[in-house]
């Protein structure tokens, strides 16, 4: 029985519907990937071109990084699909707890007292 395992299948076991969905999925991933490369290029240009003031360039590439992170999580790690409710809950909880923490750390450590 094991001999014929290496032979190719004639027809995919997936239905037409599944295949269509798969192609759709693939297309979205290509687009997201291209978009991410564009974002990375933008970040390089923003710094390398030496045209923007430092403060703006830094905040600009941080915004790009945040966008990239969400693209990564939601498109490549499939967080946007259904059945990911708990995963979403935990990631959002983590971010929700962390953002005030980081802001507070930045504000509180400084020489300026609030």
């Amino acid at each position: 029985m094991a001999d014929n395992l290496s032979e190719p299948f004639e027809k995919s076991a997936m239905t037409q519907e599944d295949q269509r969905k798969n192609r759709e999925e693939q297309r979205i991933q290509y687009i997201a990937f291209a978009f991410m490369i564009v974002l990375t290029l933008l970040a390089f240009i923003a710094v390398g071109a030496d045209l923007l003031p430092a403060a703006f360039a830094v905040s600009f590439i941080i915004v790009l990084a945040v966008i990239q992170m969400f693209l990564q999580l939601y498109y490549f790690m499939h967080l946007r699909e259904k059945d990911h409710g708990w995963a979403n809950t935990f990631m959002v909880t983590g971010l929700f707890l962390v953002i005030p923490t980081i802001v507070a750390l930045m504000l509180l450590i400084g020489v300026v007292k609030y």
């Binding site: 750390l105 930045m106 450590i109």
Partner: peptide, 21 residues
């Protein structure tokens, strides 16, 4: 992974705090 979020946030937070100072 969500636990890692807080861990790296602490590292980033420390860095940003130094940067603010």
């Amino acid at each position: 992974l969500s636990g890692e979020v807080t861990m790296f946030a602490t590292f980033f937070g420390t860095y940003l705090a130094f940067e603010t100072v």
